[in-house]
Amino acid sequence: MNLKPRAISVLSGGLDSTVATTYLKDHYQIHAVTFNYGQRSAEMEIKSSQAICDALDIEHTVIDLPWLAALGNSALTSQEEVPQIGMDQLDNKELCDQTARKVWVPGRNIVFTAIATSFAESEGAKAIIVGWDQEEAATFPDNSQGFLKAFNKVLEIGSPDEIEIEAPLINLEKTGIVELGDRVDAPLHLSYSCYLGGEEHCGTCESCMRRKRAFYKSGVVDRTVYSD
Protein backbone atom coordinates (compact mmCIF):
# COMPACT_ATOMS: atom_id res chain seq x y z
CA MET A 1 0.00 0.00 0.00
CA ASN A 2 1.40 3.39 -1.05
CA LEU A 3 1.10 5.78 1.89
CA LYS A 4 2.81 8.71 0.18
CA PRO A 5 0.57 11.72 -0.57
CA ARG A 6 -0.38 12.21 -4.21
CA ALA A 7 0.95 14.97 -6.44
CA ILE A 8 0.30 16.12 -10.00
CA SER A 9 3.40 16.96 -12.04
CA VAL A 10 3.20 19.31 -15.02
CA LEU A 11 5.76 17.46 -17.14
CA SER A 12 6.84 18.85 -20.51
CA GLY A 13 9.71 16.42 -20.89
CA GLY A 14 12.22 19.28 -20.64
CA LEU A 15 15.15 19.59 -18.25
CA ASP A 16 13.32 21.63 -15.64
CA SER A 17 10.19 19.53 -15.19
CA THR A 18 12.23 16.32 -15.40
CA VAL A 19 14.50 17.37 -12.55
CA ALA A 20 11.65 18.80 -10.44
CA THR A 21 9.65 15.58 -10.81
CA THR A 22 12.62 13.34 -10.03
CA TYR A 23 13.59 15.46 -7.03
CA LEU A 24 10.15 14.95 -5.45
CA LYS A 25 9.39 11.40 -6.57
CA ASP A 26 10.32 9.91 -3.19
CA HIS A 27 8.03 12.35 -1.39
CA TYR A 28 4.90 11.85 -3.45
CA GLN A 29 2.94 9.33 -5.45
CA ILE A 30 3.10 11.27 -8.72
CA HIS A 31 0.72 11.47 -11.66
CA ALA A 32 2.40 13.41 -14.48
CA VAL A 33 0.40 15.32 -17.08
CA THR A 34 1.84 16.45 -20.43
CA PHE A 35 0.09 18.96 -22.67
CA ASN A 36 -0.23 18.81 -26.44
CA TYR A 37 -1.20 22.37 -27.36
CA GLY A 38 -0.18 22.23 -31.00
CA GLN A 39 3.48 23.05 -30.38
CA ARG A 40 6.05 22.00 -33.00
CA SER A 41 7.76 19.77 -30.48
CA ALA A 42 4.59 18.06 -29.20
CA GLU A 43 5.44 14.60 -30.52
CA MET A 44 8.94 14.62 -29.07
CA GLU A 45 7.81 16.15 -25.76
CA ILE A 46 5.17 13.46 -25.33
CA LYS A 47 7.64 10.73 -26.30
CA SER A 48 10.21 12.11 -23.87
CA SER A 49 7.69 12.53 -21.06
CA GLN A 50 6.48 8.95 -21.44
CA ALA A 51 10.05 7.65 -21.34
CA ILE A 52 10.75 9.71 -18.21
CA CYS A 53 7.60 8.42 -16.51
CA ASP A 54 8.56 4.85 -17.41
CA ALA A 55 12.02 5.41 -15.92
CA LEU A 56 10.58 6.90 -12.73
CA ASP A 57 7.69 4.41 -12.59
CA ILE A 58 4.98 7.05 -12.39
CA GLU A 59 1.58 7.47 -14.04
CA HIS A 60 1.38 9.58 -17.21
CA THR A 61 -1.51 11.29 -18.99
CA VAL A 62 -1.42 13.37 -22.19
CA ILE A 63 -3.94 16.22 -22.44
CA ASP A 64 -4.82 17.74 -25.82
CA LEU A 65 -5.49 21.48 -25.98
CA PRO A 66 -5.86 22.12 -29.73
CA TRP A 67 -7.50 25.51 -29.20
CA LEU A 68 -4.41 26.97 -27.53
CA ALA A 69 -2.39 26.83 -30.76
CA ALA A 70 -4.94 29.07 -32.46
CA LEU A 71 -4.41 31.88 -29.96
CA GLY A 72 -1.71 34.47 -30.50
CA ASN A 73 1.04 34.00 -33.03
CA SER A 74 3.74 32.12 -31.13
CA ALA A 75 6.63 30.73 -33.15
CA LEU A 76 6.12 27.51 -31.18
CA THR A 77 2.62 26.92 -32.56
CA SER A 78 2.70 28.64 -35.97
CA GLN A 79 4.82 28.94 -39.09
CA GLU A 80 6.63 31.95 -37.67
CA GLU A 81 10.40 31.52 -37.62
CA VAL A 82 11.78 30.30 -34.31
CA PRO A 83 14.40 32.83 -33.17
CA GLN A 84 18.00 31.72 -32.86
CA ILE A 85 20.51 33.20 -30.46
CA GLY A 86 24.25 32.92 -29.88
CA MET A 87 25.74 31.48 -26.70
CA ASP A 88 27.29 34.88 -25.95
CA GLN A 89 23.84 36.51 -26.14
CA LEU A 90 22.04 34.39 -23.55
CA ASP A 91 22.55 37.00 -20.83
CA ASN A 92 21.50 39.93 -23.04
CA LYS A 93 18.24 40.80 -21.27
CA GLU A 94 16.93 43.13 -23.97
CA LEU A 95 17.51 40.61 -26.76
CA CYS A 96 16.12 37.70 -24.74
CA ASP A 97 13.01 39.71 -23.91
CA GLN A 98 12.43 40.05 -27.65
CA THR A 99 12.93 36.34 -28.34
CA ALA A 100 10.68 35.43 -25.40
CA ARG A 101 7.83 37.46 -26.90
CA LYS A 102 8.19 35.55 -30.17
CA VAL A 103 7.74 32.17 -28.47
CA TRP A 104 5.19 33.29 -25.87
CA VAL A 105 2.05 31.12 -25.81
CA PRO A 106 -0.86 33.12 -24.33
CA GLY A 107 -1.59 32.12 -20.75
CA ARG A 108 0.20 28.79 -21.07
CA ASN A 109 1.35 28.24 -17.48
CA ILE A 110 -1.88 29.69 -16.12
CA VAL A 111 -3.86 27.18 -18.19
CA PHE A 112 -1.57 24.25 -17.38
CA THR A 113 -1.57 24.94 -13.65
CA ALA A 114 -5.34 25.43 -13.55
CA ILE A 115 -5.89 22.08 -15.28
CA ALA A 116 -3.40 20.44 -12.92
CA THR A 117 -5.49 21.86 -10.08
CA SER A 118 -8.55 20.06 -11.43
CA PHE A 119 -6.59 16.80 -11.46
CA ALA A 120 -5.28 17.48 -7.96
CA GLU A 121 -8.74 18.12 -6.53
CA SER A 122 -10.23 15.07 -8.23
CA GLU A 123 -7.44 12.76 -7.04
CA GLY A 124 -6.98 14.19 -3.56
CA ALA A 125 -3.45 15.33 -4.39
CA LYS A 126 -1.62 17.60 -1.98
CA ALA A 127 0.79 19.19 -4.45
CA ILE A 128 1.29 20.34 -8.03
CA ILE A 129 4.91 19.96 -9.15
CA VAL A 130 6.27 22.48 -11.65
CA GLY A 131 9.69 23.20 -13.16
CA TRP A 132 9.58 26.98 -12.89
CA ASP A 133 13.06 28.39 -12.38
CA GLN A 134 15.04 31.57 -11.95
CA GLU A 135 16.70 31.60 -15.40
CA GLU A 136 13.38 31.28 -17.23
CA ALA A 137 11.78 33.85 -14.92
CA ALA A 138 14.15 36.52 -16.25
CA THR A 139 12.08 36.67 -19.47
CA PHE A 140 8.98 34.56 -18.72
CA PRO A 141 6.96 36.07 -15.83
CA ASP A 142 4.97 32.86 -15.42
CA ASN A 143 8.10 31.20 -14.02
CA SER A 144 8.73 33.78 -11.32
CA GLN A 145 8.61 33.81 -7.54
CA GLY A 146 5.78 36.31 -7.72
CA PHE A 147 3.75 34.07 -10.00
CA LEU A 148 4.32 31.09 -7.70
CA LYS A 149 3.21 33.03 -4.61
CA ALA A 150 0.18 34.45 -6.41
CA PHE A 151 -1.00 31.08 -7.75
CA ASN A 152 -0.59 29.48 -4.34
CA LYS A 153 -2.72 32.31 -2.94
CA VAL A 154 -5.35 31.56 -5.60
CA LEU A 155 -5.37 27.91 -4.49
CA GLU A 156 -5.63 28.92 -0.85
CA ILE A 157 -8.68 31.05 -1.60
CA GLY A 158 -10.28 29.21 -4.49
CA SER A 159 -9.87 25.52 -3.72
CA PRO A 160 -11.67 23.68 -0.93
CA ASP A 161 -8.66 21.36 -0.66
CA GLU A 162 -5.20 22.02 0.73
CA ILE A 163 -3.08 22.01 -2.43
CA GLU A 164 0.29 23.70 -2.83
CA ILE A 165 2.39 24.30 -5.91
CA GLU A 166 5.86 22.89 -5.36
CA ALA A 167 8.58 24.56 -7.44
CA PRO A 168 11.86 23.11 -6.18
CA LEU A 169 13.91 24.87 -8.88
CA ILE A 170 12.50 28.35 -8.36
CA ASN A 171 15.85 29.76 -7.18
CA LEU A 172 18.06 27.89 -9.66
CA GLU A 173 19.68 28.75 -12.98
CA LYS A 174 19.91 26.03 -15.65
CA THR A 175 23.43 25.05 -14.57
CA GLY A 176 22.23 24.41 -11.03
CA ILE A 177 19.29 22.44 -12.41
CA VAL A 178 21.60 20.10 -14.33
CA GLU A 179 23.80 19.72 -11.24
CA LEU A 180 20.78 18.90 -9.08
CA GLY A 181 19.48 16.51 -11.73
CA ASP A 182 22.80 14.71 -11.71
CA ARG A 183 22.74 14.42 -7.90
CA VAL A 184 19.22 12.96 -7.77
CA ASP A 185 19.86 10.67 -10.75
CA ALA A 186 17.25 12.32 -12.95
CA PRO A 187 16.99 10.78 -16.45
CA LEU A 188 18.47 13.89 -18.06
CA HIS A 189 19.34 11.94 -21.20
CA LEU A 190 15.64 11.29 -21.79
CA SER A 191 14.63 14.94 -21.54
CA TYR A 192 13.86 17.06 -24.60
CA SER A 193 14.34 20.82 -24.88
CA CYS A 194 14.29 21.79 -28.56
CA TYR A 195 11.72 24.27 -29.86
CA LEU A 196 11.78 22.77 -33.38
CA GLY A 197 10.64 19.25 -32.55
CA GLY A 198 13.14 17.20 -34.56
CA GLU A 199 14.36 13.75 -33.56
CA GLU A 200 17.67 15.44 -32.73
CA HIS A 201 17.96 18.73 -30.86
CA CYS A 202 18.64 21.50 -33.38
CA GLY A 203 21.38 22.96 -31.18
CA THR A 204 20.70 26.55 -32.29
CA CYS A 205 17.36 27.65 -30.82
CA GLU A 206 17.50 29.50 -27.50
CA SER A 207 16.22 26.51 -25.54
CA CYS A 208 18.95 24.26 -26.98
CA MET A 209 21.57 26.91 -26.32
CA ARG A 210 20.59 27.21 -22.67
CA ARG A 211 20.63 23.41 -22.37
CA LYS A 212 24.11 23.17 -23.91
CA ARG A 213 25.49 25.95 -21.72
CA ALA A 214 24.07 24.36 -18.57
CA PHE A 215 25.68 21.00 -19.23
CA TYR A 216 28.98 22.62 -20.20
CA LYS A 217 29.15 24.86 -17.12
CA SER A 218 28.05 22.10 -14.76
CA GLY A 219 30.62 19.61 -16.03
CA VAL A 220 27.90 16.95 -16.29
CA VAL A 221 28.23 14.79 -19.41
CA ASP A 222 25.71 15.89 -22.04
CA ARG A 223 24.31 12.85 -23.85
CA THR A 224 22.04 15.01 -26.01
CA VAL A 225 22.37 14.58 -29.78
CA TYR A 226 22.45 17.98 -31.52
CA SER A 227 22.12 18.53 -35.26
CA ASP A 228 24.37 21.58 -34.97
Score class of each variant (00 low, 15 high):
residue 77 T to W: 02
residue 69 A to V: 03
residue 66 P to T: 01
residue 48 S to T: 07
residue 62 V to M: 02
residue 49 S to C: 04
residue 61 T to Q: 09
residue 67 W to R: 01
residue 57 D to F: 06
residue 50 Q to W: 12
residue 54 D to W: 09
residue 70 A to W: 00
residue 51 A to I: 04
residue 49 S to T: 12
residue 46 I to W: 02
residue 65 L to E: 06
residue 49 S to Q: 04
residue 60 H to E: 12
residue 76 L to D: 13
residue 71 L to R: 10
residue 66 P to V: 00
residue 53 C to Q: 06
residue 70 A to H: 04
residue 46 I to C: 05
residue 69 A to Y: 02
residue 59 E to T: 10
residue 71 L to N: 08
residue 78 S to P: 14
residue 75 A to Q: 09
residue 58 I to S: 07
residue 60 H to D: 04
residue 67 W to Q: 01
residue 64 D to L: 00
residue 57 D to Q: 14
residue 66 P to L: 00
residue 51 A to K: 13
residue 70 A to Y: 03
residue 53 C to H: 07
residue 49 S to L: 05
residue 52 I to M: 13
residue 58 I to E: 04
residue 56 L to G: 08
residue 50 Q to Y: 13
residue 63 I to E: 00
residue 67 W to T: 06
residue 58 I to W: 09
residue 68 L to E: 03
residue 57 D to T: 09
residue 62 V to Q: 03
residue 67 W to N: 03
residue 51 A to F: 04
residue 73 N to S: 15
residue 48 S to K: 12
residue 52 I to Q: 08
residue 53 C to Y: 08
residue 65 L to T: 01
residue 49 S to R: 04
residue 54 D to S: 14
residue 47 K to I: 14
residue 75 A to P: 11
residue 62 V to D: 03
residue 48 S to R: 11
residue 49 S to Y: 04
residue 50 Q to D: 15
residue 66 P to N: 00
residue 64 D to E: 06
residue 62 V to R: 05
residue 53 C to V: 06
residue 59 E to H: 12
residue 48 S to L: 05
residue 65 L to Q: 03
residue 48 S to E: 12
residue 62 V to G: 00
residue 63 I to R: 01
residue 47 K to V: 10
residue 70 A to S: 10
residue 73 N to K: 13
residue 74 S to M: 05
residue 76 L to K: 07
residue 72 G to Q: 05
residue 58 I to F: 08
residue 60 H to W: 08
residue 57 D to S: 14
residue 62 V to Y: 00
residue 72 G to N: 10
residue 72 G to R: 11
residue 75 A to M: 08
residue 63 I to M: 01
residue 72 G to E: 13
residue 64 D to V: 02
residue 60 H to R: 04
residue 76 L to W: 01
residue 59 E to Y: 03
residue 75 A to V: 13
residue 53 C to L: 09
residue 47 K to S: 15
residue 61 T to W: 03
residue 52 I to S: 11
residue 68 L to S: 10
residue 56 L to I: 12
residue 74 S to T: 13
residue 56 L to F: 11
residue 60 H to N: 06
residue 54 D to M: 10
residue 57 D to H: 14
residue 73 N to C: 12
residue 55 A to D: 13
residue 55 A to P: 05
residue 46 I to G: 04
residue 49 S to W: 11
residue 49 S to E: 06
residue 76 L to Q: 09
residue 68 L to I: 11
residue 67 W to D: 00
residue 72 G to V: 08
residue 63 I to T: 03
residue 72 G to D: 12
residue 78 S to M: 09
residue 56 L to T: 12
residue 58 I to Y: 03
residue 46 I to R: 05
residue 48 S to C: 09
residue 74 S to I: 11
residue 63 I to Q: 00
residue 73 N to R: 13
residue 48 S to A: 13
residue 68 L to C: 05
